[in-house]
Design a binder for these strands. Sequence first.
DNA 1: AACCCTATTCCCATCGAAGG
DNA 2: CCTTCGATGGGAATAGGGTT
Length: 226
Amino acid sequence: MKTFWQIRDRQIKDQERRGGSDQGARSAVTGGKQMDGFVRKIIELMTASGVDEGNIYTKKTHLPGFFRPVKGWDIVVVVDGVLMAAIELKSQVGLSFGNNFNNRTEEAMGTALDIWTAYREGAFCTSPAPWLGYLFLLEDCPESRSPVRTQETHFPVFEEFRGASYAKRYELFCRKLVRERQYNAACFIIADREKSNSFESYIEPADDLSADLFLSQLNRHVGGRE
DNA sequence: AACCCTATTCCCATCGAAGG
DNA sequence: CCTTCGATGGGAATAGGGTT
């Protein structure tokens, strides 16, 4: 968590120094890399449990899609030409929850549909079904915890969305991704920037979306020891 | 009328592949 | 080797509709 907030701050400073031109807090994100700390940690845990580091890729991770030619994943594990796992990491910070929630959900659903269809069409040759993971980090703040009104102009929305905050919407989304078998596991974390250095720098709102469960399932699949 | 929510579009640093 | 091109990704400006 500390790395995440540090990198955000650094990106802002870097761009100011260059005479930055991004709008608002965009400077903190256009440089990417925010999730590098999580990437490192996940790799660390996989190698510690017996996965050869040479089989874990964070660059050149493009996998074929069905609806689009390729999609680069954050982490891909390939052993002897067999696709073992692919992981996406996402984060969202700031106030524009409505539009960005919409964007992230379309993206995650689309990515899953794209790769599973490609798999069905034999894109991964003799590979058995890969393990897909989705990790989402949301800023913990009043705006992400406040209820969001739902518009029900023609038909009622599903009950679980009524009075749900964006944090709740993301939690439901992650859970549904797993239960609909779009991803094998999902991890949902919320973090308060003010507590970036404290012992309680993050919260895992749901047991079924915990980091622990996510990582142990990953390790089990890639064949490492637990 | 003020406010809130959603959809669309744009932003640009970065990286890697392709082209010269 | 250098330049160009294209894709990526988290966020916000904007517009438009609805709600209170």
